[in-house]
């Protein structure tokens, strides 16, 4: 496989893996919590690295994922104390964790093979250089494998718990009355979100992941009323965004993940304006039509 094909493939897998849980984040209105998670898993990565001394250890992924889940727990605990509103709870927890991570990275910069820039923007361009070898056989880039596994896990979770996810998302009280535990589904979703963030951070960087999660799902949300259709549209848009983002990044010779984030913002804006049912343009049109109708009625009256 040529390098650009491999990069495109990784970008597509990362984008779809992020977009799948994103559907439920958007519907539940907790996308900023996922923004917090993507920042705090960095602390998990740094702490786990100090223990394992190996950036590729699976323990690193588990530790970082746990820190992500702990973030959700801490935010919700502070919220429940009723001293602080939800958004402020998010706003005080994640900068603290992120700051500690940055301080640790700069203090031990010599020992840790992590630098701030890589953490922020990732380096999709270098992803094909880290390869998996099995008995001397080249099995393709490592991040492709890692993200494919995460993608499959996300897809399986949505497939098997579709009913539970749907009901706890749209009517948590009803779900609880039926005997589901919304809390368990919520934490399972958040665990997957942080696992995805951990897997994606070295190719996409911690800040842009949230765009990968929210953008496509938001487009899907604006284009349809059915959850199943929303999921398929989301996946489709994620693929389109990542493929065109990679092409544009090569054309302009710039950061790939950043370019995909820009494309994502652009397509979402397009959908926001031109969505046939809920778009801004359609709203304007409807208003104009309603005004004309009103004028006509008034004329017939007078």
């Amino acid at each position: 496989m040529s390098m650009i094909t491999e990069i495109t493939l990784i970008a597509v897998v990362v984008a779809v893996a992020c977009a799948l849980p994103g559907v439920f984040l958007v519907l539940r209105g907790v996308t900023m919590v996922s923004d917090a998670i993507t920042h705090t898993v960095l602390l998990g990565i740094v702490l786990a690295f100090f223990i394992t001394q190996d950036l590729n250890s699976p323990l690193l992924m588990i530790g970082a994922t746990l820190v992500g889940v702990a973030t959700v727990w801490l935010i919700e605990t502070i919220q429940r104390s009723a001293l602080v509103s939800t958004d402020a709870a998010i706003g005080i927890v994640f900068p603290l964790f992120f700051s500690i991570a940055i301080i640790l990275i700069t203090l031990y910069a010599g020992d840790v093979h992590l630098d701030e820039d890589a953490v922020l923007m990732g380096d999709l361009a270098f992803a094909p250089f880290r390869r998996v070898d099995v008995f001397g056989l080249d099995m393709g880039p490592q991040s492709l494998w890692v993200m494919s596994v995460i993608l499959v896990m996300n897809a399986l979770f949505i497939f098997f718990f579709y009913k539970e996810l749907k009901i706890t998302t749209f009517d948590p009280a009803f779900a609880a009355a039926l005997g589901f535990t919304p809390m368990i589904i919520h934490y399972a979703l958040m665990t997957l979100v942080s696992l995805t963030a951990v897997g994606a951070y070295d190719s996409v960087g911690s800040i842009l992941i949230v765009g990968f999660m929210v953008g496509p799902a938001l487009s899907g949300y604006l284009l349809t009323h059915s959850l199943k259709k929303m999921i398929s549209i989301t996946v489709l848009i994620a693929v389109v965004n990542s493929v065109s983002g990679v092409q544009l990044a090569f054309f302009f010779d710039t950061t790939i993940a950043g370019m995909i984030a820009v494309v994502t913002g652009f397509t979402t804006l397009l959908v926001l304006v031109f969505s046939p049912r809920k778009g801004l343009y359609k709203q304007q049109l409807n208003q104009k039509r309603a005004r004309k109708l009103l004028d006509k009625r008034i004329k017939t009256l007078t």
Binding site: M32, I207, G211, T254
Partner: peptide, 28 residues
Amino acid sequence: RKTLVKLDSALSLVLSSFFGLGLVVLTA
């Protein structure tokens, strides 16, 4: 204000796409 999108989704979208654009410009 004008669409059905909630504040938190709007914030995450604008935050990440503007930051992405910033990184694109800085890298260039």
